[in-house]
Each structure stands twice: as C-alpha cells, then as structure tokens.
Nucleic acid binder design. Structure first.
Lengths: 230, 230
DNA sequence: CAGTGGTCTAGACCACCAG
DNA sequence: TGGTGGTCTAGACCACTGA
C-alpha cells in the first residue's frame, strides 16, 4: 500500500472490510489511527471513510466511531436521462411523434398531483418516442401552465417536451416511481403491442421550490431493461 | 449568505444555478473567485462544487473550469435492501417459505452467468417472501457452491439465503437489472396471481473479486412500486 | 505552457453523544 | 464530559488540458 491518494486508501480499507478484518457491527480504528497507519493526514482518511459511508458500507457516528454495517444496504445509482439520449446511446436514430397536444381541465388525479386549482387548465401532451422508427416508449404528460406558460410558445413538434422542460426548468426536484403495468388500450395501440402486455413504467413528478411543474408517465416497449452496477 | 459550512455554500450556488445566473454550458467562476466571494478557503468551495458535480448538475474539468451542464442527467439513488427489511419498513410482518432447495447441475444460462465449469453443481433455491402472510415476492436463486460451500450448512429455513449471503459475503459487487415481465406458470402459482400478470422483476448477479457468487431473480407481486426522489 | 481543478497537509475548533 | 467524527483554513504541489 504505497500508492498515493485517498482513492487508494479507500480501496485498501474496502478490501480489508471484504476480507472480514472487522466483523459487521464492530468498531473500526479511528481516523487518527488510520492516519498513522497509512502515514497521511487525518483529512485524507476522513475523505476515504466518508466515501465508504456514502456507499452504505460503513456507518460513522461522532463519539461512537466507525463501524462496519450489520446489513449493508447497497446504494445503486441510476442516471435518469432524456429519452432521446437514451435511445441514441443504444445506437438508434431518435425521432418523436407528438400525437396529441391540448390545453384542457386536468382530471382530478393530475390536478391533485400538480396542486392545481379546481378546474384549472393544463397542457396535456402525448408523445411516442421512436428508436430507428420503432416505438420505444409512450409518454403521457401534463404540464402546469401556471408554472411554465412559455411552453405554449415552444415548438414541441421539434423538441420533445421532456427536453424543452429540461432546458428551461433544468434543476427541479422530483419524485420517480418505477412499476410494471399492463398495457391499456391506448398504450397497446400506440406501442403496437397486445393489450395487457407487461410494460415497464416510470412515473415522474417534478417541481421547483413550491411550484409543481409537470407529471409524466412513460411506458416502455416490452423488453426494456434498466441496468446498473452496485 | 452568512451561514457557515460548505453545505450552505452549495445550496446558495445551487439556487443561483436554478435562477439561471449561468446559462447551461457557460463557465462559472473559478474556485478562487468563489472563495473570495464567500470569504472562505478554496477547499471549502471545492467541497461544495464537487458535491454539485456528483449530483450531475455541473461539470468540472481542469484548465477548462466549471460549467453548468447542458442537459443535466439527474442521478437517482436507490437503496437495495434486504427483502425482509423492505417488508418490515412497510409495516408488515415478514415471513419466508423456502419452497425448494436442491443441489444440481446448473442450466446453461446460469452456468454462464456464474462462470461455472460445464456440469458443475450449484445450489438452487426458491423462496416466497410473505408480508403479513400474503405473497410479497418470489425469489429464484442459484448459488455458486465453489464460492460459498458453507451455505450448505446454513439454516436456510430460518434465515433467508438473501440475508445469509449478505452477512457472510457482505461487500460484493453486482449488477442489477429491472424489468417488467409476465408471470409464468410457476410465478403465477406461487404468488397467487393470474398467468400473464405484469410483474416487476429484479435480476441480480453478485461477485467478489473474480468469483461469481449468486444470481437471483426476484418477482414482486402486482402493484409493487419502487420510488425515489431526485 | 499557464491556469484550472484535484488533492494533500498540519493544525485548529466545534458538535455530538456514549459512557 | 471527553473522545469521536465533521469541517474549516492557509498553503502547497501536482495533473491535466485548452488556448
């Protein structure tokens, strides 16, 4: 272990944990001890250990010290990309069809989700995302016009609402929900699959501060997989 | 902005980004400038900006400086918990039925995934996870006996294989894949749903260094949702 | 090749909380 | 209440890479 850097130290400690040097739940050496052992500053050890703590491998508490987690809950990270980029990353040509665009009163469920006033108008958009001409995903979206009235001027036939919103309201917060659903009549029709087909679905609500911006449901064509490393 | 801490500085900068102070793709001030502005050490600014970079909001390059991302791809984090903890977190009593446990030659697909020799024996386990007595998920797992022969001595009727493995080979790496599948005959039977029902499925392969440990498929009962914040 | 971010150091003070 | 981790500082050197 004569490599430099908190990275090397982190990996060295990770390996010692894997090898069972400290049993789960047991206290590990303190930062000062590690610093002496690896002959570096305490801040460097701190960086390494914080990094492991972020991964969910160890737990750190003031006064109580650092412990190996009893039941490590691994944290998986997903990139939530724009559909266009996702399609292009798979080596396909991306196109999109805006199959419906209408301003109307939002149904109750959407109005609740977006905190709209009773009977408020909202923009409803339906889009099919295509990969090399084949249906890739069907998007059903409602946009709060109070939050982003400018979207009515946007050329949504050219830039998908997804992408327009990301560019204009880029750093919003949100909630994402993944599930498996049966294709309804509309989804089946649009994606060209049998009604009742199992679809991977993503629900997403985004807001900025107190203002709810949009709610989207995305239904992927059968066979879609979301992968990640842990 | 007279609060202390890299946290406060990070949130202040995040807000300035949200408000559009620097257009996407434009260069932001350097660390030295920010340090002067917030009257703190450069290291503190570095911590704040690295944190924003990890979130995927900004991009940093040596020499080129720090930029607001053009198309921010948000990173969602998921905890990948032990099923028992997931069930208990929902306020249900957890039980599990080990419905099959057999050592036999792994089918070709599993053997490939786990890098087993031709015709090697592996442990096949089928488990139903129950929440308050109702089927919650069906688990189909293969374990590489070369990697963890001790599992044959484990009381798997008491501790789920999932949990035993987490305790005994806690810090392995893995690949996770989420998808939507139709319930096959076996899954339908076990979960008590109609054949063809849409199920949320998780595939997971884990390994430690070069040794492949286990491959698992988990089929959740209909209605399961995986949620997270971004 | 100069300027940016990446990292390290030694020292310091503080917040937290288990003993 | 003392020992732990959390954070800050001022200064330094280095690695990378765009102008």
């Amino acid at each position: 272990m004569r490599e430099r850097g908190y990275f090397a130290i982190r990996e060295a400690i990770r390996e010692r944990i894997s090898e069972g040097e400290w049993a789960p739940g047991k206290t590990m050496p303190g930062e000062v001890d590690f610093a002496a052992e690896y002959d570096c500053a305490r801040a460097t050890i701190n960086r390494a250990l914080q990094s492991l703590a972020e991964e969910g491998i160890i737990e750190r508490k003031r006064r109580a010290g650092t412990r190996v987690k009893e039941l490590p809950t691994r944290r998986a990270k997903f990139e939530i990309p724009i559909v266009r980029l996702e399609v292009e990353a798979r080596g396909h040509a991306y196109t999109a069809n805006l199959i419906a665009q209408e301003t109307k009163a939002a149904p109750r469920r959407i109005a609740q989700t977006l905190r709209l006033h009773r009977g408020a108008q909202a923009l409803h958009l339906e889009t099919v995302h295509l990969a090399s001409g084949r249906p890739y995903a069907y998007e059903d979206r409602w946009v709060n016009l109070t939050a982003v009235p400018e979207i009515l001027e946007a050329p949504l036939y050219k830039v998908s609402a997804n992408e327009w919103l990301v560019r204009h309201v880029p750093y919003s917060s949100g909630e994402v929900c993944f599930s498996a659903l049966h294709a309804g009549k509309r989804q089946a029709e649009i994606l060209g699959v049998a009604q009742g087909a199992a679809l991977f679905a993503v629900d997403r609500t985004t807001w900025l501060e107190d203002e709810y911006i949009t709610h989207m449901q995305l239904y992927y064509s059968p066979g879609y997989q979301m992968r990640t490393r842990i």
